[in-house]
Amino acid sequence: MAGLATYLPAYLIFALLLFSFGLIAALARRSAIGIFMGVELMLNGAALNFVAFQALRKGVIANDSWLHGHIFSLFIIVLAAIEAAVALAIVLRVFGSRQTIDADRADQLRG
């Protein structure tokens, strides 16, 4: 356990864990919001990966002084927010027309 905080694979495995739980949630959840939460978890896993490499592997990524890893995860967070806004709008419309956001039942393409 000692030195866990600077042991890079620990962060990578945790990011993988988040990603796989996100994958399960996205595939198995029935409600549209559940799928969206799964996607959020996957994005978080990826963002954590970038930050871990930027912080703990100085030589490989940051050959120069720019914080590439941190910037990537910042843009991941920003784009996840925009995705959330559009997702809420879509969920509103689907709920407006079909009174349920059950992804299985909302699969017909009629208006």
């Binding site: 910042l74 920003v78 927010a81 925009i82 959330a84 806004a85 809420l88 709008a89 509103l92």
Partner: peptide, 17 residues
């Protein structure tokens, strides 16, 4: 409330960036 949430989200991201 939903519209406030959508517009807030985009402007909150803008402030943070």
């Amino acid at each position: 409330f939903y519209l406030v949430a959508i517009v807030f989200l985009v402007f909150d991201v803008e402030v943070a960036l």
